[in-house]
Design a protein around this nucleic acid. Structure first.
Lengths: 137, 137
DNA sequence: TCCTTGTCTTGACTCATTCCAGACAAGGGG
DNA sequence: CCCCTTGTCTGGAATGAGTCAAGACAAGGA
């Protein structure tokens, strides 16, 4: 995925921090804003917290990144977008993994009674223990 | 659901704040901790924030309440537990509704590749617009 | 009724995230 | 190629949900 043209065609500027933030998420899937900040600082020398949050927000708005917020953990970002996949979250250590939906295409999008809501997305989160935490058990 | 015996058999004390917190959630499904605090204060005259968080945590641990955390909104509590239902959340106003799962029983629990995770719950969140927000549109 | 132990209160604190105002730089116009 | 405009970034303070800690208090068994 080439970020620069996507930003340009949206009328947004191509800046070092945006590219660095994007690359950070590609390198560390499911990382937190804090991890991104650390990575951007490592690559650019300096970056403000605000600038990183700003870059991440722009990238999410453009559909280049996806933001997920598992209960009980800060927001996490991933670069795999538009393929309708879901997540497994470890209850013990919080690690996140990707899961392709069992019923590929829109999963469970058939809510039985939607109370008149106009639904555009079904988000599935699987909760359990990751291999290493279930071993410690 | 009778709360007092459930607390007693778990070796926990039956206190006015716990009962009031439970009743608040029964009366206001999907309400926030703040709403519960307000309701408890209305009924008991006074209650500390901490006491309410404490009571809610105990009730959740006993399985009497369920806590959900839709992305971008504070935690919400509901008294409907153990029936494996899911939620619709309005992207605009944040209102939450209950949805019985399309594939009743454990929905989508068939994750295609779980990376060795031991999964115990599949949580589904439907995102969209509630009737009144989609009308304003 | 008394005592023990688990609850509740108050107040300070953390953490992720956002707001603000001013400094700065990307990239189109001259 | 340089300048100017406008969108971006910086630093610092602030917000809001939730937690920690220590002492006051009360539920309910002895």
């Amino acid at each position: 995925m080439d970020v620069a043209p996507r930003l340009r065609e949206a009328g947004l500027r191509v800046t070092a921090s945006r590219l660095a933030a994007y690359e950070a998420v590609v390198a560390l899937p499911h990382c937190s804003a804090d991890d991104v900040t650390a990575s951007v600082r490592r690559h650019l020398g300096t970056a403000s917290t605000q600038g990183v949050y700003d870059a991440l927000r722009v990238l999410v708005e453009q559909g280049l990144l996806r933001r997920i917020e598992p209960a009980g953990s800060p927001a996490r970002y991933e670069a795999r977008t538009g393929d309708n996949h879901h997540h497994v979250v470890c209850r013990s250590c919080g690690v996140v993994g990707d899961v392709d939906c069992a019923m590929n295409a829109a999963p469970c999008l058939e809510a039985s009674d939607t109370h008149g809501f106009v639904i555009d997305e079904a988000e599935v989160t699987y909760w359990g223990l990751c291999p290493s935490c279930s071993r410690k058990d």
